[in-house]
Computed example of a mutant assay.
Amino acid sequence: MLKSLYSGVSGMKGFQTKLDVIGNNIANVNTVGFKKSRVMFQDIINQNISGATAPTSISGGVNSKQIGLGSKVASIDTIHTPGSPMTTNVGTDLAIDGDAFFVVTPQTGGGVSYLTRAGNFTLDANGSLVNSNGYYVAGVAVDNNGVQHQIPITISDDQKSNQKFTSYSIDSNGYINVVREDGKSGKLAMDLTTNQYYLNNSTTANQNENISLATSVVPNPGGLKKVGNTLFEETGNSGLANTGRILDNKGGQIDTGVLEMSNVDLTDEFTEMIVAQRGFQANAKTITTSDSILDEIVNLKR
């Protein structure tokens, strides 16, 4: 059988994968925090018709003769360029200007954590800061021994004074500034001995107990695995996540009242769609041409 038949099939499969990725990118053009993907190709193997020969004193060298046997998908990369910011003026809409990710977890008692750039958070009925799937947004506080604790963020009331918080705001370093019903203001903190949330208005004492949003920086963001719901999880090739305060892991700064939108560029996607479509058609034409040649061969004996 003609090798071009199988080369054409491999090309069609590759361009079909490319179209699938492009379709997913376009479908998520307005998804908050979405990171687009791209497909890269490479050739498969080559059949050696003859090897190369080195030049001698009486003759020149000859290059090898090889016939390629198609292409395959080399990688599907996730592109972590920043998306366009969209101003919402909602206090719980957050965006990171930098390389860090927000950290969310399905359970309050720890367990698995996910990374995300989607900062469309809200407060639930208990005053806990959650994402659109109900996952708790992780906060960070440090005990007296310098041990960092990952805790949920609950902006409800001062459990030491039994007074409610009347307003709150999140600053660029991820700290939660709160105002109590008696008019006192300070930072939301947690007494890690009693697990009580309280207002800390001291500029010197218990500063480590101030709660800030947990952020995570990974050495290779492209190695993160997409798990759906605009969430990522660590893999062996992403490297270990450095989770903590955004000031400590140098992940950038947090913008309040802003959302990071998808980094999909429709101009690029439609251009790549044309390339993929024509590539698919060209490979299909290779198959039909090979079929015509085979038909001529079969018709030689009549």
Rank of each mutant, 00 (worst) to 15 (best):
A138I: 09
P82T: 14
T31D: 01
L188V: 11
Y136W: 00
Y135P: 03
G23Q: 11
K226M: 00
S290D: 03
T289E: 07
L266R: 07
L294S: 06
Q253A: 15
E209M: 13
G33K: 00
N299Y: 06
S167G: 09
L294A: 00
V104H: 00
Y135S: 03
L259T: 08
A284V: 03
V112E: 15
Q16C: 05
N283Q: 10
H149D: 10
A282D: 09
D291T: 01
N210Y: 11
M261W: 05
G146D: 05
N30E: 08
I79T: 06
P82Q: 09
S71L: 14
G68K: 07
V130S: 03
P106F: 04
V9H: 07
G33L: 01
L231R: 01
G127L: 03
N120P: 02
T215E: 10
G257S: 09
S290T: 03
L19Y: 11
N63K: 12
K226D: 10
N144L: 14
T116C: 01
D158A: 09
T81S: 06
I176Y: 07
I44T: 15
V227K: 07
R38E: 14
A282Q: 13
V9M: 14
P55D: 05
M86Q: 08
S132R: 06
M86E: 05
A27H: 05
L259G: 01
N162L: 12
V21D: 14
N25R: 08
K65H: 12
Q42F: 12
N177W: 08
K18M: 15
G60T: 01
S4N: 02
V178T: 08
I67S: 02
E269C: 12
D158P: 10
I45Q: 09
T56Q: 03
I76N: 11
R38V: 13
F270T: 08
N242W: 06
Q16V: 06
I293F: 00
G174C: 14
V142Q: 15
E272G: 15
D291H: 01
E209D: 13
T56L: 02
N200W: 06
V142E: 14
I274Q: 06
K160R: 10
I274N: 08
I211S: 07
S169T: 10
G91T: 15
G186A: 03
T286P: 02
K72W: 11
V73Q: 15
G222D: 09
F102L: 02
K187T: 13
S57L: 14
A54K: 14
K184C: 03
S71K: 13
A95H: 04
V178Q: 07
Y175F: 15
T286N: 02
N220H: 10
Y6H: 09
N210A: 12
S59D: 01
G91C: 11
G223N: 05
D157V: 13
L231V: 02
V39A: 10
V298L: 03
T56A: 04
V298E: 08
V178C: 02
T78G: 01
L300Q: 15
K225H: 11
D291N: 04
N206S: 06
V298T: 08
E209Q: 15
S167M: 04
G223H: 05
M273N: 10
N28V: 00
D124Q: 04
Q107P: 10
N131T: 00
Q16N: 09
V140M: 11
I246E: 08
K184G: 10
T154I: 12
